[in-house]
Nucleic acid binder design. Structure first.
Lengths: 229, 229
DNA sequence: GGATGTGAACGACTTCACAGCG
DNA sequence: CGCTGTGAAGTCGTTCACATCC
């Protein structure tokens, strides 16, 4: 039970547009590429050129972009700035998202120093760890709190997202606590599954699975491709 | 051009079994869960119990497992140890894979300390960085080499995989060098696309895309789910 | 001609339904 | 009965083909 698909927009007034999981992933790619295109001084793109630089077909791109509304002009292409705005708005990243991070190990430190998040409007505003030796110390200018204080910090900072970098065995417990404290979306770096109540979202990053996929592909050792994600 | 699907096994003698991209991802999950099941002292599982613990349907699991051969016994279930061996062998991880890592920043340090890789047979056997200040220093017991020495290190260590943790702008160049030095599979942590020649595989881990996906899901803010990857 | 938007065809993956074995 | 394996049906996503507009 628990199927896996319907991603849609509450149809405000008959607007029935839906985005698939897959297309949402591509929107992120489009966005980054479009920002580069703009930085290169181009104000227009065609589905063809965009597709070339991303290793996707032009049709695919048109299908995706068409779902944002009719932004393209036949014979001309798309206005880059307009596309960027539309994608940002669709993804909900035309604003800042605040996140807390739980489990301050090496991975956490790496993420804290990673500039990519901040550049795209994601800010880590609170650190938590159960280890008494870490509590009270500071990493990258942020103090590490006891998990007890989670609710309080979430309320004062307005954090909605949570980054989970704790060991596998404690993930579910920690996640439960975060959700109870008000977190609505989890980025989970620990292996395995996290069960969450309705209304809470989880995206997992499982490095071992990725490496095993790679090993499998190399293990087989044949055919083509440009390869993305 | 560059379609995206055929993942198959060279049909040695009529053996036409194929695995989809999707099922390969799940095999990793099965494997880890099965190892836990075994550790819990169970020697058999049914597709139903496995499915429950992974948030998948029993049918899905049977379909996947059936593609490994007829390992299940009607009325009984599957032998856990047998499944584990079959999956390991299919994924090509019934052996050790050696990898080099290029770009020794914070993320690299986190990965080096991550036990999960070693536990599953992935060993990082060489570090490289273009920064002269880093070359010659040691991280986690491994010396950082100049990229010049890549070929030599790959040959002596037998590394086949490469982990790319360099800044976005240099990814393509660095990747080209790694491939020329003999690497056949890349795990790329930098955003964007890497173009590789036929025969080389890339798996990308794009943290910003993942975070943006999460933001989108929370942004929408409705429906169900257990949530996996 | 150059490029978009889109129904229809196609293909991949999942779920259903059920035959058959232990 | 319980549980697997699998054809058939269904669903989702991508590609084709083409009408349409600048």
């Amino acid at each position: 039970m628990a199927s896996d698909e319907e991603i849609g927009k509450r149809s405000a007034a008959g607007q029935d547009s839906r985005w698939s999981r897959a297309s949402v992933g591509r929107f992120s790619l489009y966005l980054r590429r479009l920002e580069d295109v703009l930085a290169e001084g181009n104000t227009r793109v065609s589905s063809h050129t965009l597709g070339d630089s991303l290793g996707l077909t032009d049709t695919q791109i048109r299908k995706d972009l068409a779902s944002l509304g009719s932004l393209g002009q036949p014979g001309i292409g798309y206005d880059v700035a307009e596309l960027i705005a539309a994608i940002r708005s669709t993804l909900g990243i035309d604003r800042t998202w605040n996140a807390i991070l739980v489990g301050v190990g090496n991975l956490a430190r790496a993420l804290l120093r990673y500039q990519g998040f901040v550049e795209r409007g994601f800010r880590i505003v609170g650190l938590f760890d159960a280890d008494p030796e870490k509590i009270g110390t500071t990493v990258e200018g942020l103090r590490i709190h006891s998990p007890d204080r989670m609710k309080e910090v979430i309320e004062t900072t307005g954090a909605e997202l949570g980054i989970l970098t704790v060991p596998a065995h404690s993930v579910q417990n920690v996640a439960d606590g975060m959700i109870q404290a008000g977190i609505r979306g989890l980025l989970n770096f620990a292996p395995g599954i996290v069960r969450v109540p309705e209304g809470v979202r989880v995206v997992g990053v499982d490095l071992t699975v990725q490496l095993e996929q790679l090993a499998f592909l190399v293990h087989l050792g044949d055919d083509t491709r440009i390869s993305t994600r």
